[in-house]
């Protein structure tokens, strides 16, 4: 038992070191620009389509649910406002992060894991290349850039999906929908929505890289680290989303 606690603490320490050094690598030479761009391409261009599809349908479903409920209360004109707030502050960042985690995070963990198993990480170290800087920093940096970008696009598409349902299915006024969206695009909402993807991106990249780099023992080990990367990222995203929401509401002066 004591052994396990000790192991947990030393694992946590390793994780913090990786996260810290990976992040600091952004400011320290050497810079691996090419690797970063390659990662951005993989993470960004590769995830765009799935983010579009997922966001579109989530926006539509949300709008559908709310229109139905609000219509029975005679408050249909609030659909845009509620959909907008939900998407921008909460649903958008979280769904896009989950999609990103399933696609990119899993990819990072399995790629780095197979590099560990194939002694490629050892090769890097023998050649005097710091694996953290060469592999982890580009992945963190690209996630810090790409996830917020994807979230913005996802938000827009979700709102568009919401608009489609509100106007063409629930027969609401398009003008009311958009003007209520415009109203909620104030500093508070946009700020709370745009802080999250940075944090989520950092979590996904560091957790996935850590799991990949600590892979042990063949194909089974690879499976374990990939699964762990996704599961742990998802849990951390959901928990940190709640905490962030709490903090942001407090900082931005909302009363509950």
């Amino acid at each position: 038992m004591v052994e396990r606690i000790k192991r947990l603490i030393s694992d946590l320490q390793d994780f913090y070191l990786l996260a810290f050094n990976g992040l600091m690598g952004i400011f320290r030479r050497p810079f691996y620009l090419k690797d970063t761009i390659e990662q951005m391409d993989y993470a960004g261009a590769g995830s765009l389509l799935i983010v579009l599809i997922v966001s579109l349908f989530i926006g539509m479903a949300l709008s559908l649910q709310l229109s139905a409920e609000l219509a029975s209360l005679g408050l249909k004109m609030y659909t845009g406002k509620i959909v907008g707030i939900a998407v921008i502050r909460e649903v958008g960042p979280v769904t896009v992060a989950l999609v990103y985690c399933g696609r990119v995070g899993a990819g990072m963990a399995s790629e780095l894991g197979s590099m560990v198993i194939g002694h490629q990480i050892d090769s890097l170290r023998v050649f005097g290349v710091d694996p953290i800087k060469k592999l982890v920093t580009p992945r963190i940096l690209s996630s810090l850039i790409i996830l917020p970008a994807l979230t913005t696009i996802g938000d827009a598409i979700a709102l568009l999906g919401g608009y489609y349902v509100a106007v063409f299915v629930s027969n609401q006024s398009g003008y009311v929908y958009w003007s209520s969206i415009r109203d909620i695009l104030d500093f508070e909402n946009v700020f709370s929505g745009s802080v999250k993807p940075f944090i989520f991106g950092f979590i996904i990249a560091t957790v996935s890289c850590y799991m990949g780099l600590t892979t042990k023992g063949g194909a089974k080990g690879l499976r374990r680290s990939t699964t762990n990367a996704v599961v742990l990222s998802i849990i951390l995203i959901i928990i940190s989303d709640f905490m962030l929401t709490r903090i942001l509401l407090y900082v931005l002066g909302f009363t509950l």
Binding site: M115, G118, H119, Q120, D122, S123, R125, F127
Partner: peptide, 18 residues
């Protein structure tokens, strides 16, 4: 680093970057 430069090591499975 300076120690490693003294050696040229070839790993068991080649360890090429795939």
């Amino acid at each position: 680093m300076d120690i490693r430069k003294k050696f040229s090591i070839v790993f068991q499975d080649g360890a090429l970057f795939d």
